[in-house]
């Protein structure tokens, strides 16, 4: 009786970690630019496809391909911000939202054109067997993913809190005009922040690639979860996003154990609405927005 519950708890925590990393990107982008990135799900998918192509064409192990994915996704994010987001940085929010939605349409369908809708998957030798601890099966890719998520979160934390660029990003997120007056090149900082956010999505994509099938629209399912986690953790708050990711991961896996897979989504959406209504500043947020 206890085993299935413990099993879901573990699965939830491990999965929640990956959600958290992806959501961290949403949180950072909103924190700095006040833009809800509706292309985030598609960008996770791009990360998955880069990983898959490196694996299929050059037999690169997904975990080895991480630096390439990070570099590629950061550059992609940087360029996307410069070309499309920057011109509308002060536009009404429906314009911004629809623009990122448009980017999502472009990215998803570009993947469809390039790689077709056929499902792809990565099978890693030696990784497909689960580790068994006291009757609880622990999926190896999920465990590795969790370790990388912890490392990546620390990396982003140090990047934002211990480097000049990080301080400039924080300053920009607090007050854009003020940062400009202090000599911070805000446009460049915005592009860097967007690049980091997109790189987070890319790493999440790499980590998800060995766990599940890959297709151009698979990222959609993660997008709303990213928003939920980012808001729940407090938009712009890194450790909040990590904590919220773990909570949402556990809630999801517990709900799916109790209610069945398709109703479990409902629980998450209800939590989302409750959070938005009662605590839109998130878990650790201040009282006012």
């Amino acid at each position: 009786m206890a085993i299935p519950i413990l099993q879901s708890l573990f699965d939830g925590i491990l999965m929640g970690g990956v959600y958290a990393l992806a959501a961290l990107g949403v949180s950072l982008i909103f924190g700095v630019m006040k833009i809800t990135n509706f292309a985030h799900g598609a960008l996770i998918t791009v990360g998955m496809f880069v990983t898959y192509e490196l694996y299929a064409a050059l037999h690169v192990n997904p975990y080895v391909s991480l630096p390439i994915v990070i570099a590629f996704m950061f550059a992609l994010g940087f360029v996307i911000q410069r070309v499309t987001i920057n011109p509308i940085i002060n536009a009404p929010s429906h314009n911004q939202l629809l623009l990122t939605q448009g980017l999502s349409i472009v990215l998803e369908n570009l993947l469809l054109v390039m790689f077709t809708a056929n499902y792809k998957s990565i099978t890693l030798k030696g990784f497909d067997q689960a580790i068994n601890i006291g009757g609880i099966a622990i999926n190896k890719p999920k465990l590795i993913a969790f370790g990388i998520v912890v490392a990546a979160s620390f990396f982003v934390y140090i990047l934002l809190n211990r480097t000049d660029t990080g301080h400039a990003i924080s300053a920009t997120s607090v007050q854009r005009e003020g940062a400009t007056l202090m000599g911070i090149r805000v446009e460049r900082i915005n592009a860097i922040a967007f690049g980091i956010g997109v790189a987070c999505a890319g790493v999440a994509g790499t980590l998800l690639a060995p766990m599940q099938y890959i297709s151009p629209t698979v990222g959609e399912g993660f997008q709303l979860k990213c928003f939920i986690i980012a808001v729940f953790g407090g938009l712009g708050n890194i450790w909040g996003a990590v904590a919220a990711g773990l909570i949402i991961g556990v809630v999801e896996s517990m709900a799916s154990l109790a209610l069945g897979g398709s109703w479990s989504e409902m629980v998450i959406y209800l939590i989302f609405i409750l959070v938005l209504l009662f605590k839109p500043t998130g878990l650790f947020g201040r009282k006012t927005r």
Partner: peptide
């Protein structure tokens, strides 16, 4: 003949219009 290309064009037009005609 090229599945997805229609939506790529559609999405690009959308993005360009939002930037050019806010």
């Amino acid at each position: 003949s090229l599945p997805g290309m229609n939506m790529v064009t559609y999405g690009l037009i959308l993005v360009i219009v939002i930037i050019a005609l806010p």
